[in-house]
Design a protein around this nucleic acid. Structure first.
Lengths: 191, 191
DNA sequence: ACTTTTGAACTGACCGGTCAGTACAAAACG
DNA sequence: CGTTTTGTACTGACCGGTCAGTTCAAAAGT
């Protein structure tokens, strides 16, 4: 078994368990068990439970951010926005547990690690912010738009809607959800 | 010390600690300590840590829902939407810890209590849904609007934006945040 | 040979829950 | 009126169990 493969198995196991029970309640024994390896392997590979969690967050956010950035690439600003929203839906559909973990563990109040988690989340939100900024620069969106708040609004809206979608109506086609979200964003709600 | 007073002190202490560390990591000893009473008192009043948490969720969601419902009362549909969004911002501003707890502990995957938590959260979202439904009935919003998804989107958007607001720019006037959100919802983003 | 993994045993801290007992005020009693 | 009882709210030491983290010798993989 290669080291990276073991690491990935541990990642997915930890993501699932932490999404289900939260970081504190997910025991290392159980994570190792679900990943099909021994407890010692966790400590050989990561050194500590916290380090495993941090590595996992970075790994996941890296992929998440890359997926969003990749979706926007080479598109006109407004198309890019639509593509980023879709990419966020797709990513969450495929990595539901990670999304739950992200939402559950990164909006804590005070403490020690939240800085890391918060920065990571911001980095994800910033991709949306960049897309909005381009749209403003291209004259597609109002010049006085508060890009920071809007980015956070779009990202958060899609995140929570996606989780409700997976939880309550998983059979619903993604395009419908995407269409509703884009209608909302483009002001096509009012008559 | 009256029973209800003790209960409320335990509520606020538990809300703060769970928002900071999560349910599993918030120890009953510490909750009791911060509330200024003994551990036994928690068990005398609630019977278990889980029961304390459930009671606390119901207590908080009751107030949250009432605040939203009260804000919408007697207003024309579109004004009601604006008022509900503002009420959500106000409530989160005043009960930031509870909002963090709500977001962190109610989007878990499987398990035992999530039903309770999820239903409770839905009950809050449903207030937004009702407002949207009235607006559709009044002809202010498109008849084919997917009210469920839109309600979840509005609620989630405001929730995450409010938390970012409290965390990153607490000095910013609430009206600005509110205005940006309403611009987003009314399609005043595009040029 | 060298890296990686195993799995079991152990430690020490911490945590949820229990329970016998305290404090005390309002009733019931004589 | 004094005293006894009762019920409520609370206390905090204590118990059984769990868990992160350590250690290590042996096996497996490359």
């Amino acid at each position: 078994m290669s080291r990276t493969e073991t690491r990935e198995r541990l990642f997915t196991a930890a993501i699932e368990l932490i999404a289900e029970r939260g970081f504190a309640a997910a025991s290392v024994d159980e994570i190792a068990g679900r990943a099909g390896c021994a407890k010692g392997t966790v400590y050989y590979n990561f050194g500590s439970k916290n380090a495993l969690f941090t590595a996992l967050l970075e790994y996941g956010v890296e992929r998440f951010g890359a997926a969003l950035r990749g979706a926007a690439e080479g598109l006109a600003p407004l198309d890019a926005l639509s593509a980023v929203v879709r990419a966020e839906l797709v990513f969450i559909g495929e990595h539901e547990s990670f999304a739950r973990l992200l939402i559950a563990e990164t909006w804590r109040a005070g403490g020690d690690w939240p800085q890391a988690a918060r920065l990571i989340r911001e980095r994800t939100i910033d991709v949306v912010g960049d897309v909005l900024r381009s749209a403003v620069a291209a004259g597609d969106l109002r010049a006085d738009l508060d890009v920071g708040t809007a980015a956070s609004a779009v990202f958060g809206m899609v995140l929570l809607v996606a989780l409700d979608w997976r939880t309550l109506q998983p059979d619903r086609p993604m395009d419908e959800v995407h269409a509703t979200l884009m209608d909302l964003l483009r002001g096509r709600i009012t008559t």
